[in-house]
Design a protein around this nucleic acid. Structure first.
Lengths: 221, 221
DNA sequence: CGGGAAATGGGTACTGGAGCCCATCGACGG
DNA sequence: CCGTCGATGGGCTCCAGTACCCATTTCCCG
């Protein structure tokens, strides 16, 4: 419990599924110290609402149309550094976890957690305590530390605009020839970008690029 | 509103994300005529619970671990034909939609709908009225449901067990060689199954098979 | 019993993905 | 001003994926 005179945490809720937003809102609004003050259906809308509302915490889905949660987090943190961001995701995925932290998120919570944990994560994020979502994190951190010790820096996953463009097209099933025609570049350049993507993301082939793009919310399945 | 003496609709809620379950439950339990009597975290558990609980309606996510919502729906309908199934999904996808109907679902609701619509869909499903998510194709759906109920379902693109097995492995990124080793068959047979899959589903390559498998809930992205 | 479907496997050929080498050009920062 | 990096493009090789041909075995159904 919190002290009665503590002002409620003002929350911006961003998720592309209205049903999920509604459910999460019901969960959060039951807490006296949490108050959902705005709801966004995509990343761009979340940024807009953050401009016009007084917000302490953004609870944001990682995969949203128009602008992914990761991208929105980057912009939001740049725009209003005092706003904390709690990433909400269905993916228990190491890559995502670090991407979220790199983007500036204060916490990372799976949709498979219980409602009490979500509430706890909100409060922890506001206290600048990293919320450790159940289970996996210990293994994640150990893994991460191991790789750092072995000099295997996790692959830098900052894609250039052009690479992201190519990634989308590849994942949508276009052949190199088609992509070359679409982007007005040669097939070889498509190959180069794709090779860079594979290397940067530590993936093996187009198929894994596709799954990555779907996970990242760049395209729909 | 419903008449006071109508017994509440007993609902089995199946979704792999505890947070979503909780939210949906809060939405449904606010209605006097709806009562969530059981929660399952995957398809197999949903079947188990359906055996041991009196259930009128199953609200089921289409993509779940262990057993997909589609598969669980098939088994549930076979096991207890009187139970209605409402598919809950984030995919606004025609393929999915018909797959769900084919599996025996009475309704199909996107997670992007408002909470009122979910409640309406539950009531509609119990009255054997198809709830239509974008509202467009009422007649088409009614027609289709009629045909299915009368057993006139044309075995459209039904995959064999072996084909589905191969599809999963392909979509998970395994090469032909790996699949051959896993299934103890020759590479040529893997090629043959995959070629059959491509023809049956009208797809072009492994990449599209992957996206199909993800849409169909056979694998996670 | 006969026919069809499913599962198995072989051959041959082409295409396209992917790894590896190379180079040029412009922008940006130290 | 020079080095790095992103974007561009070419050549080369290897091999996996895909198409199209063929066959056998098993099993179920009419």
């Amino acid at each position: 419990m919190t002290t009665p005179d503590t002002p409620a945490i003002r929350i911006l809720l961003a998720d592309d599924h209205a049903l999920v937003r509604r459910g999460v809102r019901l969960i959060l609004d039951r807490e006296p110290d949490l108050e959902v003050v705005a709801e966004a259906g995509d990343g761009a809308q979340a940024i807009d609402l953050a401009r016009t509302h007084e917000v302490d915490l953004a609870v944001m889905d990682i995969a949203m149309p128009r602008m992914t949660g990761l991208q929105a987090t980057r912009e939001l943190v740049a725009l209003k550094p005092e706003v904390r961001v709690l990433m909400l995701t269905m993916h228990d995925n190491e890559q995502y976890f670090f991407q979220a932290l790199k983007a500036g998120a204060s916490g990372y919570v799976l949709k498979s957690v219980a409602d009490r944990d979500l509430v706890a994560a909100c409060r922890a994020a506001m206290r600048d305590e990293p919320f450790l979502y159940p289970g996996a994190v210990t293994a994640l951190i150990r893994n991460y530390l191991d790789r750092v010790r072995h000099g295997e820096e996790p692959p830098d996953q900052v894609l250039t605009a052009r690479e992201e463009e190519v990634l989308k097209l590849v994942a949508e099933g276009h052949s190199s020839k088609e992509i070359a025609r679409i982007l007005f570049i040669s097939i070889k350049t498509v190959h180069r970008h794709r090779a860079n993507l594979l290397h940067k993301l530590g993936l093996r082939d187009r198929l894994e690029l596709t799954r990555y793009a779907i996970r990242a919310g760049l395209i729909e399945a």
